[in-house]
Simulated assay, not measured.
Amino acid sequence: MRKPKITNTIRRLRFDANEMTQKDLADKAGVSRQTIAAIEKAKYTPSLELAFKIARVFGQPLEDVFICEYLD
């Protein structure tokens, strides 16, 4: 089975949302700023619930925030 690579557009979405800080997003999603930083850097994959919360903060569909690519 191929391993998925999950990337995201959170940094760009934060910038487009009046330069929202990681802390602001973290507060709205109910997690720590460090968690948001790790997700942005693709060092941590969020739970499905958290991924939906983050997408909802930006008013975007999940697949516009998180991109899943399969690597060989």
Rank of each mutant, 00 (worst) to 15 (best):
R2K: 13
A55P: 10
E19G: 05
F15L: 15
Y70Q: 03
Q34A: 14
A51H: 08
I39L: 07
I36H: 13
K43T: 08
A17K: 14
F66P: 06
R11A: 11
N8T: 09
M1S: 11
K53H: 06
I54N: 05
A51K: 09
K23F: 00
Q60V: 12
I6W: 07
K43S: 09
N18G: 14
V65G: 05
L13D: 11
I54F: 15
D64N: 14
T45K: 04
I54Q: 06
T7H: 04
K23W: 00
E49Y: 07
Q60S: 09
L71H: 05
E40H: 00
D72A: 08
I67P: 01
C68E: 00
I36N: 10
Y44T: 12
Q34S: 14
T45A: 10
P46H: 05
D16L: 12
E69Y: 04
F66Q: 06
K41A: 15
E19M: 06
F58P: 03
K3A: 10
T7M: 03
N8D: 12
N18F: 05
K3R: 09
D24V: 01
D16E: 15
L62D: 02
A37F: 06
Q34K: 13
R11C: 02
T45L: 08
D24K: 12
Y44D: 08
L62M: 09
